[in-house]
Design a binder for these strands. Structure first.
Lengths: 141, 141
DNA sequence: CTAGTTGCAAAGAGTTTGCATGGCG
DNA sequence: CGCCATGCAAACTCTTTGCAACTAG
């Protein structure tokens, strides 16, 4: 699958490493990589490869209208539930105990087996809540 | 927005009413409506209108690769967290108390304000878990 | 050397849109 | 009657693919 470590792959991966846990669209990535020698097709192909390797996670917002790629360096990530801020696109890890409790209650009450890889919880992170509160205040004034 | 109640709109809505809480792709819907007088564009346009009205919810699976529409008759739905079975596509409502507790812990521990409209929890429902267990048993045998 | 990878451009899938016609109220 | 919605086909966006040239190992 990832037999060769090509120049293009290194370019992409190093770009992603500079933006860990951010939500990047394919266009964002392509834009960040203009003037570096990598083609759009290579971006897509390597993104797909990295996704299979588990280093890149594909998420979507607003029911699939927007698609983002997120690079995650750490290995520990796969078992965590992820929180995605709709405002800034940053990803957070949910507290392990909370996640376990959620899975327990889901299983106990609805017999639903939660998939931690596919599930992403959307909302607003603390920084963005504050920012939005300030914006609202200004608008009202 | 939904000024006129046209024949096509009635066709679509009645089809959706026959498939409540199911995950239907645009193609599924179009297929189910061939030989009825409604065009693809009308399907898309009315789907978008129904979504704005809150009667249809757009969800996606596998990071936006697949997009589904779900019809929800009830009004009470908007405040619920939804569980989506990756296997059969059915939607379930999460127990209100569990949802509240989840939102509380998220807020207390990571100051994260969960958005119940955008968030969908993926996993496997009870029926599909049983079905998959049986399948595995047969494959091993 | 030889198989995986690249770039390009063409092909595809899925969805949206412009415009003339038709239908709801 | 006037405005909204429809159907059709063309346009669009995003992504994938075929193929010859290239390059890592």
């Amino acid at each position: 699958m990832a037999a060769y470590v090509t120049k293009q792959r290194r370019i992409l991966q190093s770009f992603l490493e500079d933006h860990p846990d951010e939500s990047l669209s394919a266009a964002d990535i392509a834009k960040g990589l203009t003037d570096q020698s990598i083609s759009v097709s290579a971006v897509y192909r390597n993104l797909a490869a990295l996704e299979e390797e588990g280093k890149v996670r594909r998420v979507s917002r607003s029911g699939g209208r927007e698609i983002y790629y997120q690079y995650t360096d750490t290995e520990s990530c796969r078992s965590h539930l992820h929180l995605l801020c709709k405002s800034c696109g940053a990803t957070y890890h949910m507290d392990k105990a909370d996640a376990d409790q959620l899975m327990q209650s889901l299983y106990n009450h609805e017999k639903f087996a939660l998939d931690t890889v596919d599930t992403v919880l959307y909302g607003t992170c603390e920084a963005c809540q504050i920012r939005e509160r300030m914006k609202n205040k200004h608008e009202k004034a």
